[in-house]
Simulated assay, not measured.
Amino acid sequence: MNPYVEVIMRSIIAFTSLFVAARILGKQTVSRMTIFDFIAVVTLGSVTANLAFAMEIETRFIFIVFTIFVFLIYLSAFISLKSEKARKLVAGDPTVVIENGKILEHNMKKMRYTLDYLNQQLRQKDIFSIDEVQYALVENNGLLSVKKKEQHLNVTRKDLNIYKSEIKLPVELIMDGEILKDNLTENNISLVWLHEELKLRKLTVGEVVYALLTSSNKLYIDTHDDDLQFPLDVE
């Protein structure tokens, strides 16, 4: 067989084998990664390792394999983007493991997902008792999504009829002794007001390292002279 054809065939077989292996091993094997993230990490890492250490393999063959894997990963992602059926084939669907407070053992067995691992993932969400859970499903990246029962949900401001106006982002006013005039203009902050605030504190712009208008409309100012008797950052 032509060596180039053999390399191409072996690359496709290796890619397919990894895909099947990831499917068989289950979602917890690739936790925090999608199947194709897992394949990309394993294959590209192996190929580049061979490029560095496998002196008996010609460099051009390794580059061909690398290119093929990159192309296959890109092609799979592109097809998944265009086709819902392909997306389900490649990534799969989330798997329900708790429904209406009942553990679905059959679904867990199909993906080799144990009760110990379920409890571990629930504890990571600050849930220490399964009876608090209404629904739980394992996402395509192996992470657990949970909906608590109504009686175990955290109380929100809306539940208590406590409403607060929209919180705005802090605005930087001075940095390293320079007034950030663009920030003042964009946020309708008066330059005169800023100078008056500095005057009230007996400061000049040059003495200020950092000035910030906080979300609660309070002015935070840090100066070059922090007036600390025992500063912790002295070397």
Rank of each mutant, 00 (worst) to 15 (best):
L212T: 05
E172K: 09
K199C: 00
E186P: 02
P170I: 11
L198R: 01
V205N: 03
G206E: 15
T185Q: 10
T156D: 02
W193L: 09
L191H: 08
N161V: 01
M175N: 14
N187T: 01
V209N: 13
A211E: 06
V205G: 06
L191Y: 12
Y163D: 13
E186K: 08
D182F: 10
E166D: 14
G177Q: 12
V155E: 12
H195D: 14
K158T: 14
V192W: 02
E172A: 00
Y163V: 12
N188G: 03
K158F: 09
V155G: 05
E197W: 08
S190V: 10
V155S: 07
T204S: 14
I162E: 11
E172T: 08
I174M: 03
L200E: 10
V205D: 10
L169E: 06
L212H: 03
N161W: 01
Y163A: 13
S190C: 12
N154V: 15
D159K: 10
L198D: 04
E197N: 07
M175K: 13
K158N: 13
V209I: 15
I162C: 12
K181L: 14
L203T: 07
M175F: 15
V208E: 06
E196Q: 13
L194N: 10
E196F: 02
E178A: 02
K199N: 11
S190W: 01
Y210A: 04
D159C: 07
L173G: 03
H195C: 02
S190P: 12
V209Q: 11
T156N: 05
V171C: 03
V209R: 11
